[in-house]
């Protein structure tokens, strides 16, 4: 029973936890290798400038 409750709670929390993944286009969160700088601005100019990429939305 506790397992069922835990599973339901985890499902309920899923959208909140995974929201940054859901809202981010796939090609926008390819991470660079450790120690290297983050990817350059998107060729179409839609993505944020480098400073913004280095300091992503810290709100939540």
């Amino acid at each position: 029973m506790a397992l069922i409750v835990a599973t339901l709670l985890l499902f309920a929390a899923g959208p909140f936890v995974l929201w940054p993944l859901i809202k981010t286009p796939v090609d926008d969160f390819i991470s660079p290798p450790p120690g290297e700088s983050l990817s350059p601005p998107h060729p179409l100019g839609r993505s944020a400038p480098p400073e913004k990429r280095a300091l992503p939305g810290g709100g939540v």
Binding site: M1, A2, L3, I4, V5, A6, T7, L8, L9, L10, A13, V17, P20, L21, T24, D28, F29, S31, P32, P34, L38, R53, P56
Partner: peptide, 29 residues
């Protein structure tokens, strides 16, 4: 008991993912 169990799973997930994401400097993760 279910809430504690779910918190444990979520806490463990947070720990593993945060270490990995910090090392990879992956902002989304």
């Amino acid at each position: 008991a279910g809430a504690l169990l779910a918190a444990l799973v979520m806490g463990g997930f947070s720990a593993v993912l945060s270490f990995w994401a910090g090392r990879q400097q992956n902002p989304v993760m």
